[in-house]
Design a protein around this nucleic acid. Sequence first.
DNA 1: TCGAGAACTGGACACTGTCCAGCTTAATTG
DNA 2: CAATTAAGCTGGACAGTGTCCAGTTCTCGA
Lengths: 167, 167
Amino acid sequence: MLEGAREVLAEVGLRGLTMRALARRLGVAPNALYSHVPGKDELVDALLDDHLGHVTEPPADSPDPLAAVAALMTSTYDVLVAAPDLVPLYFARRGARGANAQRLGVTMDGLMVRAGVPARTVPPARVNLIVHAIGSASFATVGGDAAESRAAFTAGLGWLLAGIACR
Amino acid sequence: MLEGAREVLAEVGLRGLTMRALARRLGVAPNALYSHVPGKDELVDALLDDHLGHVTEPPADSPDPLAAVAALMTSTYDVLVAAPDLVPLYFARRGARGANAQRLGVTMDGLMVRAGVPARTVPPARVNLIVHAIGSASFATVGGDAAESRAAFTAGLGWLLAGIACR
DNA sequence: TCGAGAACTGGACACTGTCCAGCTTAATTG
DNA sequence: CAATTAAGCTGGACAGTGTCCAGTTCTCGA
């Protein structure tokens, strides 16, 4: 079902991702979907979190934790940019409630602690990094040069990490 | 018309802001709205840019340009947080191309140049700051402590500005 | 073998944004 | 002042949306 939703999304975009379109692709009546999903909102939430599964997570015992954080955020950015239609939804929704999102958050926290970031500043640092990744990806999807957007993201990431790490 | 839309939005939220609801409030048939606006998308765009008019702009000849940038971004954040329903839309839409948004961008650029930021890094710096403000506001609107969210925003703003201004 | 429960269907409901043809009223002309 | 133009409004409709209800069919474990 999620797979079908992904396909429909890829083919006709978010505006075309409708319960009826998904049902048509699955060869099923629209109502049948409600035997598997409470509603469209939950479907989209599942789609969002599922997509985060593509993020490549660095090993928890990386020698350079701060570089690992940078790599994680960059991978997140790339994964998000690859699905332009979904990106804005991460903001409108909880964004950090799904299993994959939660896992990424835990990984980030662990890396930062190992990098020597004070426990008090870990939560705001995490929020700022996530906001930066999703927000930059969102801006990258509306016109503009892709390489330029990515460069801006990288620059901002560097600034944030420098501020987080400096004590 | 925009005023009516603002009222409807404030009372019933974004989901309740429908052409028919707006028409009802204006004491008019739904179709009549299309004599003033091409469609709902344009209505929302106008609403978004109009809302940015509440941002208080620092004088262009501020003695401390960098502090002025910080004040501008903070005001933007506060204005955005005051309209939670609108915030996520700023990412997906052209709302960032409205007259007010453009004016704010020009002001930011001028302040940064005066602060000695190299011309090459002004555009990415601007994008990063905007992303930070909108993204932080968006995240602040979903649960959590408001003061805590604002503190995280301020911390991130400081990190970004330090990186932008360094050397 | 049978019975419970999941999966599915036809059909509807209350919405949505938007368009068309026509009417009414105000403004702009000669 | 009269006549024409144009803007604003209306009733009614169209296609599409998410979702629910009451049944039906099918699968599978006891």
